[in-house]
């Protein structure tokens, strides 16, 4: 391959890696900032619940929460499937 285009490709790759790591780190910090905070979950089927956030797995498949206020009572410890969730909010 031509050296100049290879150089441009490398630069492009480095920029993309930089952007990806900045975005990922900011996201991870956001998840960390949620721990022990009261989080409101908007879920599919118009289900809205509140819980104290514990932790997320790194693939963002499950949220571990405590004191989950469901429409039928409080579940002390729970796992919420991220695919059931549309959005979640917390105060900062």
């Amino acid at each position: 391959s031509i050296p100049t285009s290879a150089g441009a490709d490398t630069e492009q790759l480095l920029e993309e890696q930089h952007a990806r790591s900045v975005l990922r780190e900011r996201f991870l910090r956001c998840l960390l900032a949620m721990s022990n905070k009261k989080v409101h979950f908007r879920m599919h089927e118009k289900v809205n619940v509140e819980a104290t956030f514990g932790a997320s797995d790194i693939d963002v498949l499950n949220f571990q929460v405590s004191d989950l206020h469901t429409p039928i009572g409080v579940q002390k410890e729970a796992l919420i499937r991220c695919h059931d969730v549309i959005s979640l909010t917390f105060e900062v």
Binding site: A33, M34, C82, H83, I86, T89, V92
Partner: peptide, 8 residues
């Protein structure tokens, strides 16, 4: 204040 919203 402010709130943070994560949209999956």
């Amino acid at each position: 204040g402010a709130s943070v919203r994560v949209v999956m």
